[in-house]
């Protein structure tokens, strides 16, 4: 008998506490070893995922490939018949392009790694479309313009670039991705592609290009993301350069 609180033998071993502390210890070790473990696991899993007909590997974290992010509810699809891309703001010739108009313009193909700010990367992804610089040149930039603002037909997302960034050769109004027309889930029929920056700059479901006197922060930038989102040199990240 004896008092339960005093009798160590009768109280039993504190296995519960040991299990709890053990899990916490393993968690801390996992954080320390995470970068190495995560790289190893990613390469194994993306190998498995390529040969996985069931799609079950999609349910595992970071098994390679793109992830679907949308800031609104379901986005209504637009087709060749009802898609329009407007160019306005501080320009001499405001314009509205149909999908066929864009397809008729000179196309540029870029093969480059996609790097998301949340960590995933998809290597050597082909994008094809019209150089943003060409659309801006055709519109005629007025004096006092310094930036470009992008709006999207999901109704919420927005992005921006300085004029210098927007005129780079690796910034596209993309019509094709992975050598197929950009699908709805990937932001089709037309999305932005800003190759040297984190993928949140590459706005999906692009519907408007507005030339502005100053840079206006985009959707995620209001929540603390960097406006100048160079891969490896922003958002506190040091990802290896994309190529």
């Amino acid at each position: 008998m004896g008092n339960v609180n005093d009798d160590a033998a009768q109280r039993g071993t504190p296995v519960g506490r040991r299990v709890m502390l053990g899990v916490i210890g393993l968690g801390a070790a996992g954080v320390a070893a995470g970068p190495v473990l995560s790289r190893a696991l990613d390469s194994v899993l993306s190998g498995v995922a390529r040969k996985d007909p069931t799609g079950l590997t999609d349910l595992l974290p970071n098994s390679g490939g793109f992830r679907y992010y949308s800031v609104t509810g379901p986005v209504e699809a637009r087709s060749a018949t009802d898609y329009r891309l407007t160019v306005d703001g501080l320009v001499d010739h405001p314009a509205s392009y149909t999908l066929a108009d864009l397809e008729a313009l000179p196309q540029t193909r870029i093969v480059h790694d996609v790097q998301c700010v949340t960590g995933w990367r998809v290597s050597a992804t082909p994008f094809q479309g019209v150089k943003l610089a060409d659309l801006l040149a055709a519109a005629g930039i007025q004096r006092g313009a310094a930036a470009v603002r992008f709006s999207c037909f999901d109704g919420s997302y927005s992005e921006s670039l300085t004029l210098d960034q927007a005129r780079r050769d690796d910034v596209l109004v993309a019509l094709r991705m992975q050598d197929r027309p950009v699908t709805h889930d990937h932001g089709g029929p037309v999305r932005l592609y800003v190759a040297p920056m984190y993928f949140y700059k590459s706005a999906k479901w692009l519907s408007g290009i507005t030339v502005t006197p100053t840079v206006q922060k985009g959707y995620w930038e209001h929540y603390g993301y960097d406006t100048d989102a160079w891969v490896g040199r922003s958002n506190g990240r040091d990802d290896a350069p994309t190529s």
Binding site: V23, I24, L26, G27, V31, P35, P61, G119
Partner: peptide, 27 residues
């Protein structure tokens, strides 16, 4: 406890260096 700790590291990104954050995301 581990989810709370790693979650806070991912939420408040300035709390810790980047390698910690990568490890926290992984865990």
């Amino acid at each position: 406890v581990v989810m709370l700790g790693t979650g806070l590291l991912m939420w408040f990104t300035h709390l810790a260096p980047l390698t910690w954050r990568t490890g926290a995301t992984f865990v």
